[in-house]
């Protein structure tokens, strides 16, 4: 079985203008949603208390809301979580009460009148911790970007490093944009997913760049211009790109289906990251590298005769 029966190189680079336009539009949309709607940060970032309770039968949300609001705790959110029996309750921080007191009070209100309910999880985070997480998260993203750029600049060329990072950030911003648009909860686990995408999606660019470098060094490719060389590199790696991403996506999809609410956000971030990862590494990173003026000379400089001897 062979899925990809491509006779001639696909002229990806000639679509450069179109793809750049598409990217730009999605990017701007993502930034727009981030700016207008903002991320729906989880309690880990904002501080406060979150409770998860489970009822033996389907939960009666309006009744729960009425009971919790009766306690006058301020801005309380009650929502169902995955199934109709699981309910998530968010409470704001209270200066004069500890979260254990808060959660006990709420549980008491829910249990009043002999209602059966099971406390599954309580999470409380102080406000200072949240600020720290945001700053650590941003530092982590910056360090990852710098580290990857340095490595790519050393292994390849600075033009490749810059275009790979731009393509990568494009993916990250789009993931964040989706989370802002649909107001999905942005938790620490989702942040881990986003950072994993950063490492994963750069793989893709690396594979293509590796091929471009190899093509530049091949004697048979002498007559072709840079755009043709990049087209050839992308075409010859496209089948592995699709298959690899398909496999990873199979795994992520399995997490999305079987992983339950705890892994839902993580799997969602990765799904978006993988889909846009394919697109951006092929149709964003390479055109940028081309626009930055990658040439054969940049790649040939460190001539290593041994590596050139291709079987």
């Amino acid at each position: 079985m062979e899925f990809f029966r491509i006779k001639r190189d696909i002229p990806f680079m000639s679509y450069g203008r179109l793809t750049t336009a598409i990217s730009l539009v999605t990017f701007i949309l993502a930034v727009f949603f981030l700016a207008t709607k903002g991320l729906n940060f989880s309690v880990e970032f904002t501080g406060g208390t979150v409770m998860e309770v489970q009822y033996p039968q389907a939960a009666n949300l309006p009744d729960i809301r009425k009971r919790v609001e009766g306690l006058r705790l301020g801005d309380v959110q009650v929502q169902s979580l995955g199934t109709s029996r699981d309910v998530l309750i968010r409470l704001p921080s209270k200066k004069d009460k500890s979260s254990a007191q808060l959660s006990n009070e709420v549980l008491g209100a829910l249990k009043a009148g002999g209602t059966q309910v099971d406390l599954r999880k309580v999470e409380f985070v102080g406000p200072s911790v949240g600020e720290e997480l945001v700053s650590h998260g941003l530092t982590a993203i910056t360090i990852v970007c710098i580290g990857i750029m340095l490595y790519l600049a050393l292994r390849f060329e600075w033009r490749f490093a810059v275009s790979a990072i731009i393509a990568n950030m494009h993916d990250v911003v789009i993931i964040l944009g989706c989370f802002a648009l649909f107001q999905w909860e942005f938790s620490l686990t989702v942040l881990a997913g986003v950072l994993a995408v950063l490492g994963y999606s750069v793989n893709e660019s690396v594979v293509v760049f590796d091929r471009i470098r190899e093509n530049f060094r091949k004697p048979g490719m002498r007559g072709r211009n840079t755009a043709q060389i990049i087209d050839n590199a992308i075409t010859s790696t496209i089948s592995r790109t699709i298959i690899t991403h398909g496999s990873t996506e199979a795994m992520v999809l399995s997490m999305l289906l079987f992983g339950g609410p705890a892994l839902h956000g993580f799997a969602m971030a990765l799904t978006i990251g993988i889909v846009f990862g394919i697109y951006s590494s092929v149709l964003v990173a390479s055109p940028i590298a081309l626009a930055l003026g990658v040439k054969r000379e940049h790649m040939i400089k460190p001539v290593k005769p041994k590596e050139e001897a291709v079987v």
Partner: peptide, 30 residues
């Protein structure tokens, strides 16, 4: 106390199961 988390034992067991199934089915598909 700046952070507090309580996880019920049933939720813990469920998390193991869900994590295991995700890995199993993903692996099988691949």
């Amino acid at each position: 106390i700046v952070e507090e988390r309580t996880i019920g034992p049933s939720l813990g067991k469920e998390n193991i199961e869900k994590g295991f199934h995700s890995t199993l089915w993903g692996f099988a598909a691949i």
